[in-house]
Design a protein around this nucleic acid. Structure first.
Length: 687
DNA sequence: TGGCCTCGAGTTCA
DNA sequence: CTCGAGGCCA
C-alpha cells in the first residue's frame, strides 16, 4: 500500500468529520449532500480495498453525528440502524437488490417472486418515539445509532404526532420510528413570513427540520412547520407485531400515527422498478422532498432470516434518485442583451450533472439577485434543478471562495458599455433591469427584434431561426424587418448552409408570411408592453392600422386593458419616425391583412366567456383550440381563477385541473369543447 | 389604496 | 414556468 492512499484516507476522514459537524451539529452545511455522499463513498471504497486503513474513529464506523452536549443522551434499546444505499441510480438498482435477497435466501429461479413493501425515503431527520402505556414518554434523535439525544420537548410540538395512542388497550411499550421533515409548501410559506418580518429564512427543508428539532427552546421549534411520517418500530413489549411490514404500517396508522400514503406492496424486481419509476416521475409534484425510495422485504419472518451485514439490514435498501442539487464553479459571469436591451447576467458554469441533465448556464436575473446571493466569479455554488424547472443558483459556498477574494460583481462597473454595440448602459429609476441605450442600432437588439418578428405567434416565418438571423445581421444583409422582404436569391446564397433548396424554402416562407392578420402584425413590431393579447385587443378595437397610427395616448386608453403605461409605450413607438418608416416599408413590401370595421365588443357564440386550456387534447393542438375559441369570440387565459368559465382539460392535465375542481369550474374535454363551438350550440351556453 | 388577475418578458436543454 | 408589474375594481 502506498503512502498516498493512507494520506488520502486520512484527508477524507478529516473532511467528512468536518462536514458532519457542520451538518449535524451546526445545521449549517457547506456543501450539497451529493458532494458529501461522494466523499463518503470514496472513503468507504478505500477502506473496503484496504481494510488495514480502517480506524475505530472513522466516520464510516458510525451512523450519524455526535449528540449535542446540551441535550440529555438517550441509549436506544434497539439500535437505530441505517439502510444501505444502492449505488446504482438506474432502475437496475432494484434488480441488484432482489438478486442479492434471493441469493441470500438460496432461492432458485423457479421459486415465486418475493413480496416487497416500497416506501419513500424522506429527506429529513430520523426520530424514535417511545410510547409507554400509550403515552408519548420519550423522543430521541438517531445520534450515532446507539445513543441519541432527548428531544421530547421539541417533538411534542409537532402537531401530527399523537401524544397518546388511539387505542383503549395500549401496549406497555411501543417505539415508533420515522422521519421528521418540513413539507415544501409549508417551508415556502414559513420563509416568506420570515423574509417579511426580517427574520432569517431556512436554507432548505432538510436543514430546517434538523435545526428545529435541535432547538434548545421548544417555543422556537413550535413555530416551525414540522411534520412526521412513521416507517418502522424499535423496542416493543406486549404488542402483537403484525407478520408483514405493510401490516405493521397499517397497524401504526390504526394507532393514530401518520403514515405516508405513498407506499405499495409489490411482487418481485419488476414491481420494485415500477415503483421507483412511478415515484421518480411524480417526485417534483410531491409536497415534500425525498431523495429516493426504500424497498423492504415485506415478510418479517423473511427479514429475520436475512438478518444484518455489519450494521445494515440485508432485507432493506435505499434506492436514490439523481441529485437535484449539485456543487459547481462559476467560471465567469457574462451578460446577454435581450430584445428590450436588458442586460441579463448569466453564470457560465463548469458543466455539472443535476436533475437528470448537464447544466452549464444559469441566469442570475439582475443585479439584485447577484447582490442577494453575493455571487462572484470563481465562486463555488449550489445549483438546483428540480424536474422541468429551469436551473438556478441557490447559494454560494463562501468557505470555498478563491483567495484572494474576487471583487463583488457589479454589472454596471464591469459593463459600463453594452458588450455588443458599445452604447452606454443605464438603470432607469424604479426598474430592476439595466438596459443598453443603443436601441435597434445594437446588433443584439436588432437580432432579437427580427427573431421576435419572425416567431411563430408573430409573422410565423418558418425556418428563420437564431443561426440565420445572426448571419443576416452580421453580414449587414438585413437591418430592419422590412428588409427581410427585399431578400433575393443572390443575397441568400451568401449564407452558410444555404444552397438552392434551403434558400428557396426560406424565400417561400418569407413570401408566405406576407399574408397575415393585423393582430399578428402589431405583435410582430415588438412594441414594449404589447404582447399577443394586447395586440389582439388593439387590432379588434381599431380594425385598421391607420386608425391605430392615428390614435394618441388618450384614445389608446379607451381600449380595454390598456392603461397609461401601455398607451405611452405605443404612442412613443409610433412617434419615432424610424418606426413609422419601417411600417410603411413593410406595407409597401407586400405585407397585408384583411382590415375590418372597428369592433368594440367581441361577437360570437362564446363572447364574454373565459377559457383555460391544460393538458394534451386528442385531436387538436393547444394553439388550434385557442384559435377556434377566439374565433368564436371567447377569451383564452393562462391560469385558472374565479373568473374562468370553462377549463378544457386533455391528457396529463396538471395543477390547473386541481384548481378548477376546487373552484367548482366547469370542466370540458375536447368533445364537449367542439360541442360548444358547433353553431347549433349557440344560445345553449347558459344552460 | 389594496388586492386580485392577467399579461409580458426572460430562460435551459435535448 | 415564474416573476414583476400593469390594470381594474371594491
Amino acid at each position: 500500500m502506498s503512502q498516498g492512499i493512507a494520506e488520502r484516507a486520512r484527508l477524507l476522514r478529516e473532511q467528512i468529520n468536518h462536514h458532519n459537524y457542520r451538518y449535524y451539529v451546526l445545521d449549517n452545511p457547506e456543501i450539497p449532500d451529493a458532494e458529501y455522499d461522494r466523499l463518503y463513498r470514496e472513503l468507504e471504497a478505500l477502506e473496503a480495498a484496504h481494510p488495514q486503513l480502517v480506524t475505530p474513529d472513522s466516520p464510516t464506523r458510525r451512523v450519524g453525528g455526535k449528540p449535542l452536549e446540551s441535550f440529555a443522551p438517550v441509549a436506544h434499546r434497539v439500535p437505530m440502524l441505517s439502510i444501505h444505499t444502492e449505488t446504482d441510480i438506474e432502475a437496475s438498482g432494484a434488480l441488484n437488490f432482489d438478486a442479492r435477497v434471493r441469493r441470500e435466501l438460496k432461492l432458485k429461479d423457479s421459486d415465486p417472486p418475493i413480496e416487497y413493501a416500497c416506501e419513500l425515503k424522506f429527506d429529513g431527520l430520523a426520530i424514535n418515539l417511545r410510547y409507554e402505556q400509550g403515552v408519548l414518554a420519550l423522543a430521541a434523535t438517531r445520534g450515532d445509532g446507539e445513543t441519541g439525544e432527548d428531544v421530547t420537548q421539541n417533538v411534542r410540538t409537532i402537531r401530527c404526532i399523537p401524544l397518546r395512542l388511539d387505542t383503549p388497550s395500549p401496549p406497555p411499550v411501543l417505539e415508533v420510528r420515522g422521519e421528521v421533515f418540513i413539507p415544501r409548501p409549508d417551508f415556502e410559506r414559513y420563509n416568506e413570513k420570515q423574509r417579511e418580518s426580517g427574520g432569517t429564512p431556512l436554507v432548505n427543508p432538510r436543514n430546517g427540520a434538523a435545526g428545529s428539532i435541535r432547538q434548545l427552546d421548544p417555543a422556537i421549534a413550535a413555530q416551525r412547520p414540522l411534520s412526521f411520517y412513521a416507517y418502522g418500530i424499535g423496542e416493543t413489549a406486549g404488542w402483537e407485531t403484525p407478520a408483514s411490514h405493510s401490516g405493521l404500517l397499517d397497524a401504526l396508522r390504526e394507532l393514530g400515527l401518520p403514515v405516508s400514503g405513498e407506499r405499495a406492496v409489490v411482487q418481485g424486481p419488476q414491481g420494485l422498478a415500477a415503483f421507483h419509476d412511478d415515484i421518480g416521475r411524480r417526485r417534483d409534484s410531491l409536497p415534500f422532498d425525498i431523495d429516493g425510495v426504500v424497498y423492504k422485504v415485506n415478510s418479517l419472518a423473511l427479514q429475520a432470516k436475512l438478518g444484518f451485514v455489519s450494521r445494515e439490514p440485508r432485507w432493506a435498501v435505499a434506492h436514490k434518485f439523481p441529485p437535484e442539487e449539485e456543487l459547481t464553479v462559476v467560471e465567469a459571469i457574462e451578460v446577454q442583451v435581450g430584445r428590450t436591451g436588458a442586460l441579463t447576467p448569466v453564470a457560465r458554469l463548469k458543466p455539472v450533472f443535476v436533475g437528470g441533465v448537464t447544466v452549464s448556464n444559469a441566469t442570475l436575473h439582475n443585479q439584485d439577485e447577484i447582490d442577494r446571493l453575493d455571487v462572484r466569479e470563481g465562486d463555488s455554488v449550489v445549483v438546483r434543478r428540480a424536474g422541468d424547472v429551469i436551473p438556478e443558483v441557490v447559494a454560494v459556498v463562501k468557505d470555498r471562495r478563491p483567495q484572494p477574494e474576487p471583487a463583488r460583481f457589479q454589472i454596471l462597473q464591469r459593463y459600463p458599455a453594452c458588450p455588443v454595440c458599445g452604447s452606454h448602459v443605464m438603470r432607469q429609476p424604479g426598474e430592476a433591469a439595466i438596459r443598453c441605450s443603443g436601441g435597434l442600432y445594437c446588433p443584439a437588439q436588432r437580432k432579437q427584434a427580427l427573431l421576435h418578428f419572425a416567431s411563430r405567434r408573430a409573422m410565423d416565418i418558418e425556418g428563420l431561426g437564431e443561426k440565420l438571423v445572426d448571419q443576416l445581421v452580421d453580414l449587414g444583409l438585413v437591418r430592419t424587418p422590412a428588409e427581410l422582404y427585399k431578400l433575393g436569391v443572390a443575397k441568400v446564397a451568401n449564407l452558410e448552409r444555404m444552397a438552392e433548396k434551403s434558400a428557396a424554402n426560406l424565400l417561400a416562407a418569407i413570401e408566405k408570411s406576407k399574408r397575415t392578420t393585423l393582430a399578428r402584425f402589431i405583435f410582430a413590431l415588438g412594441i414594449r408592453n404589447v404582447g399577443e393579447t394586447t395586440a389582439k385587443d388593439l387590432a379588434r378595437h381599431f380594425g385598421s392600422l391607420d386608425a391605430l397610427l392615428a390614435a394618441d395616448a388618450d384614445t389608446l386608453m379607451q381600449v380595454p386593458d390598456v392603461g397609461p403605461v401601455v398607451a405611452e409605450s405605443i404612442a412613443q413607438f409610433f412617434a419615432e419616425p424610424h418606426n413609422r418608416e419601417v411600417v410603411e416599408q413593410l406595407r409597401a413590401g407586400g405585407v397585408s391583412w384583411p382590415e375590418t370595421a372597428p369592433q368594440r365588443k367581441p361577437l360570437g357564440a362564446l363572447a364574454g366567456k373565459t377559457f383555460v386550456l391544460t393538458g394534451t387534447l386528442p385531436n387538436m393542438t393547444r394553439d388550434e383550440a385557442k384559435d377556434r375559441i377566439e374565433a368564436a369570440g371567447g377569451k383564452v387565459a393562462g391560469s385558472v381563477s374565479k373568473k374562468t368559465d370553462y377549463l378544457v382539460a386533455g391528457a396529463e392535465a396538471g395543477s390547473k385541473l386541481l384548481k378548477a375542481q376546487e373552484l367548482g369550474i366547469a370542466i370540458l374535454d375536447e368533445e364537449a369543447l367542439l360541442g360548444l363551438l358547433r353553431p347549433e350550440a349557440q344560445g345553449k351556453l347558459d344552460f
